[in-house]
Nucleic acid binder design. Structure first.
Lengths: 331, 331
DNA sequence: CTGTTAGCGCGTTCAC
DNA sequence: GTGAACGCGCTAACAG
């Protein structure tokens, strides 16, 4: 591999001159510059980015850590981040949180391989993040609330989302409202549940413990929860599922029980994943604008790196997406 | 930021000793090592990975370049690559091909920021890839065939896939077979089309030019193509769509025209994307095992880096996934 | 066996 | 246009 030294030698100039020439610095006269560029070409010189980053002590790259590099769920978010960073000439690289202490995530976080990180990976331990806090290394978390005043939070307003969904069902005349939740330790789920409870309370509707179920955020979990709901005898007239995956599973269970949706039972989800519009009936749900989240996160990180920022806690609104799985209660 | 120097000073040892201690080298006696580790802890020392990579001239990280970091399409593939690399203690980072010459993709390719790359991004120019060829830098392409004997190809057998799909329709008794294709310059599409033509030929079925349509690989394109097919008057009895997205669109068009699928018309897609099983009717399609592709790519890159490899061209089989959108031709 | 000295990897940038 | 220090950690060779 040719280094800048080889280029300099071939062009008959000092290494520093070669460096200036290769970076189009106007200090070198165009004649010399041309010679250098030619030498670089003949040697097929490729700069060593690592050496460069080391010297300049910055990488102009932001890392995003996601659960498993595979979630269709992150699509829009990444696009948002990518688009925004690109306008600032920053790069974006993604890695997964899988792999524990040898994971690339750890490298990103601790070894200064990127100038800042965006985190959206439940499985990444809080401690790892907190240990990585240091000056001039912006960390944005999208999936939890951490107790450190240098960490920036961009969170979705899950509470309002849960409230909105529930209120929508109430507005349609439903009073028997079940809740199929995600893992109980999951923060998003907790907040969505709080929203649900608050909405019931505000309308003076009593919360019915046997209608509170757990579906682990999975399709299978939603299916089981739906089955249980049916077997209990006193079926509710509407169900709020804390995510769309579970709603898909629950719908299956309800259909198998012979219910017509939304005629016999209304159901609303959360997330607005892609398949929600293709299932039958198309699912009403609560949507968070992932593109905006990504874009905001990227924007904040750039600001933090270059101009400094003021606020450190951002709460983004949710939006109701009404399709055909919810309807006015039949009398 | 504390550097190893600070740690050494605080522990009262030479930098080299600190380095050995931090890397658990048995040369330093445990007493000293403990002192060093403690010093590191009190200073919150984090090693600079960049400096390390520079010195060792390797990163133990593989890059994967995808179209836009967002495709649900890559999910399985990434998982495959990730899992495999992890067992070799290599990291995986992903970046998008968007951004032209300032893109992170370019950095990966030219600036030795990773030890090897996997490419799956149509928009990345051939030249950029070819220019990045150098010794000891394995490049695996999954989306095209390049004329360089140091580039490794892992390709899906699109020809056979196209053949399989078409043959399946023929086996069901269909003889009026339409083809809705992707962009004509797209290599995958071309091969699928070749497979289609070959299958027709082998069964002595004449190819009907007005049944060859173009849908740009998009849902809307498939929809339009479906409409056109209906308007032509002489509708085929079965359709092979070069990807599932188009099949989804086409089905919509056929339904709007009052056709019952598969009773009046059979349709088969390609890719087996997630929604294929949720649409109505569930779509028969041709599947490529993306997990395996990713895993194989990762395996090859590891081999190339550590043991050297023999073969440079791999062709992976496709598999027919039969659901309910295809049926025996009605007499 | 333990610890130290010193040079390296490679490009950037300041002082001359 | 150039020489040389520098960023930071690794590691071979050497000394005690």
């Amino acid at each position: 591999m040719a280094t800048i030294k080889d280029v300099a030698k071939l062009a008959g100039v000092a290494v520093s001159t070669a460096s200036y020439a290769l970076n189009n610095n106007s200090r070198v006269n165009s004649e010399t510059a041309k010679r250098v560029l030619e030498a670089a070409k003949t040697l097929n010189y490729q700069k060593n980015g690592i050496a460069r980053d080391l010297k300049r002590s910055k990488t102009e790259t932001i890392g995003i850590i996601v659960q498993d590099l595979s979630g269709p769920f992150y699509s829009e978010l990444m696009r948002g981040a990518q688009d925004t960073l690109l306008t600032h000439k920053y790069g974006l690289i993604a890695c997964s949180a899988i792999g524990g202490n040898v994971s690339t995530a750890t490298k990103f976080l601790r070894e200064r391989r990127v100038d800042g990180v965006i985190i959206l990976a439940e499985s990444l331990p809080d401690e790892l993040i907190l240990q990585s806090v240091r000056e001039d290394f912006p960390i944005i978390v999208l999936d939890r609330k951490l107790d450190s005043d240098s960490i920036i939070h961009v969170l979705v307003d899950n509470f309002s989302g849960g409230y909105q969904a529930t209120q929508h069902l109430i507005d349609l005349g439903h009073k028997e409202l079940a809740y199929i939740g995600g893992p109980s330790h999951n923060r998003d789920n907790q907040l969505r549940f709080e929203g649900y409870k608050q909405a019931l309370k505000d309308s003076g509707i009593h919360l019915h413990p046997s209608w509170i179920l757990q579906g682990q955020y999975t399709r299978e979990g939603g299916y089981s929860a739906g089955k249980i709901l049916m077997m209990q005898g006193n079926a509710p007239s509407a169900v709020f599922c804390a995510n769309d995956e579970m709603a898909v599973g629950a719908i299956k269970a309800f259909k198998e029980a012979g219910l017509k949706i939304p005629h016999d039972l209304s159901i609303i989800g959360f997330d607005d994943i892609e398949i929600s519009q293709y299932i039958s009936p198309p699912l009403s749900t609560v949507k968070q604008s992932n593109y905006e989240i990504g874009s905001l996160a990227a924007h904040l990180i750039y600001q933090a790196l270059n101009e400094g920022i003021e606020g450190r806690d951002y709460l983004l609104p949710t939006e109701l997406v009404l399709r055909s799985s919810t309807a006015r209660k039949q009398l």
